[in-house]
Every structure is written in C-alpha cells, then in structure tokens.
Amino acid sequence: MEERIVISGFGGQGIIALGKFIALTAMNSDKHVTYLPSYGAEVRGGTANCQIIISDEEIASPCIEDMDILIAMNQPSFDRFCGNVVTGGLIVVNTSLAAAKPGAVNIPATEIAVSLGEKKIANVVALGALLAREEFLSVKDIKDALPVVLKGRCEKILRLNVQALNAGLRNSE
C-alpha cells in the first residue's frame, strides 16, 4: 500500500501542521513516511502545501507527481492540484472556501470550525471528513496521536481537536 497525499491552502490554515500530524501518526503506526513542505517566501501570504507519502515499503522519491488524496482547503488549491489526482483518487474540498465538487468529500470545514469556536481547527475537521470516507490511517491511531502532538498544550486545545475530528467524521458527504 502507498498513499500519496497533498494538502494545500492559504498560509495560516494549518496546512503544515496537519501534514506533520498525519506524518507523525503514520510513523507511530510503524509505516514508512516522508513529509515535504513548500517553504520560504512562497508560503508567506500565498498558498502553502505539503506532500506526504505513507507506505508499507521504503519510499524512494518524496516528491509527488500524481496523488491519491488531495485536501484542498481553498479554491486556488483545488484548481492547482485537482488535475493531478489519480483516477479513483479522493479529493476533500473545504466548501467554505471552494466550490463543491461532485464525487468529492465536500465539507464546510471552516464554518464547522467557527461553530466550534476556533477557525484554525478547520484542518482537523477536513481530516475527519477524509477518514470517514477512507480510513487510510485508523481513526484510533489518529486519536491516540493527538495527545502526543499536543503535549504541553492545554486540555482545552486537545478537547477542541477531538471535537473537530468527530465533527468531520460526522459531517462528510
């Protein structure tokens, strides 16, 4: 099994954080994993994206040409990457900031996050929606990894992340 995932959105939408979180969970699930962020001036004020490869075998190239999963947190991200999703691949669309797409996992992640009281948590909502459609990592492993990643942060933040994940799991079309 090899999953090639691209997450893309505006800077500040937690793109990098979500990518690292997925990569860390994969590592803790004893998978091979590579994580590659866009970096430098490119991420300031513009779009940020990252590429994650999760595999049962050693990963050769960390660069993704065609992806199995795209999480598009805004319209420019969708436009840029949708053509590179393989047939049978999966697209998660944040419909708060991009047009819904037939066949995709459409979720108003930002609106749901705002209703939970924290706009920044939209990334985890999107992850929940993705897992509801395809459990490329087990929900249990994800939930186990949350306290590890958020170690040192207050209890409220952890609770918020779990709520966001659950909201995504419930609300995906």
Partner: peptide, 10 residues
Amino acid sequence: DGLLGQMMEP
C-alpha cells in the same frame, strides 16, 4: 539540498 533539508522522515 533544500529538499533533503526541509523534508521530514522518521
């Protein structure tokens, strides 16, 4: 190179 510097692996 920049790729190896920026990419994360276990």
